[in-house]
């Protein structure tokens, strides 16, 4: 008897997992993207151990072979197995994208929140900086940054992060500014909370969902940006397997009809970006249904 009463009085509280399940079942496309995302992460984590060949082992006797049962994606000009290289490259490409997006989330998001919450001169300065970044075509600025700071993977990550700062700063600023004087923030302020506490306990948790959506949406752009930079010969050096540079290596062979060298890394790149874009769209529809287009 007592147990039924207890069950009746307590409203059913769906756990986090149940919520995620709901979200995914609502839109099969998002579910597909989520599955794809998990696959990419697994390949990124375990890729080097599950590939059939070493990504660096060349075999000139078997160079430039189209896809066969032994080499699913064919071999490149040095006889390296393209399937293995594409799989192993996943880790580097995802790492570049994730590290740059997480750092821009931290820096750009923080700058935006501070600008929106405090306003005044801080807002002015941060606004000026973001406006200046926006005055450049973004990929061109990224090229300039990598050229100036040095041609390394770390600087590719940095450049990708810097060109994304304005998007994050602007969104965080708007979201923080509209909540600055909201009732619940005022209440918390009147109960004697410091500004820092208000930011951490009232503002940040509320704008987190929108920022996470933005992270997913910019992840695709980050991958494209980094791949574009390595396509023109910046950052990643051969023979390191990376999708952008592999497409660049294959580009020379396209005109002679050897399509597989550039095609498979290009497809991997496309699929990864596609996955993040779908995931971002799906998440946005859930978090912010009004912006659905």
């Amino acid at each position: 008897m007592s147990s039924t009463v207890e069950r009746a009085t307590r409203p059913s509280e769906p756990g986090l997992l149940a919520h995620i399940r709901n979200v995914l079942l609502e839109n099969p496309v998002t579910l597909f993207a989520a599955v794809l995302f998990v696959a990419f992460v697994l390949i990124g984590l375990f890729g080097p151990w599950i590939v059939p060949y070493s990504p660096l082992a060349s075999d000139t006797a078997a160079a430039l072979r189209p896809p066969t049962a032994a080499h699913w994606f064919g071999t490149d000009q040095l006889g390296r197995d393209i399937f293995s290289r594409v799989m192993v490259a996943t880790r580097l490409d995802l790492t570049i994208a994730i590290v740059s997006v997480v750092s821009v989330f931290a820096v750009g998001g923080l700058a935006g929140i501070l600008a929106g919450f405090f306003g005044g001169w801080l807002d002015q300065v941060i606004g000026r900086i973001t406006d200046t970044i926006m005055a450049f075509p973004l990929f061109v600025l990224a090229m300039g940054i990598v050229a100036a700071l040095g041609n390394t993977v770390g600087n590719i990550i940095l450049a990708t992060a810097i060109v994304n700062v304005p998007i994050y700063a602007r969104i965080a600023r708007t979201e923080a500014a509209i909540r600055r004087d909201a009732g619940f923030v005022q209440a918390a302020r009147l109960s004697g909370n410091s500004d820092i506490r208000l930011l951490l306990t009232q503002i940040l948790p509320n704008i987190m969902p929108i920022m996470v959506v933005q992270m997913s949406l910019t992840m695709g752009y980050a991958i494209l940006n980094a791949a574009g930079l390595s396509f023109i010969g910046l950052g990643v050096r051969p023979p390191t397997p990376e999708w952008g540079i592999m497409v660049a290596e294959g580009a020379a062979f396209i005109v002679s009809g050897d399509w597989w060298i550039a095609l498979f890394p290009g497809l991997a790149l496309m699929l990864a970006v596609f996955c993040f874009n779908l995931l971002g769209d799906g998440l946005r529809d859930i978090v912010d249904p009004q912006r659905r287009t």
Partner: peptide
């Protein structure tokens, strides 16, 4: 989603 250099190739 498609990298522009990939479309070109």
């Amino acid at each position: 989603s498609v990298p522009v250099f990939f479309t070109g190739l």
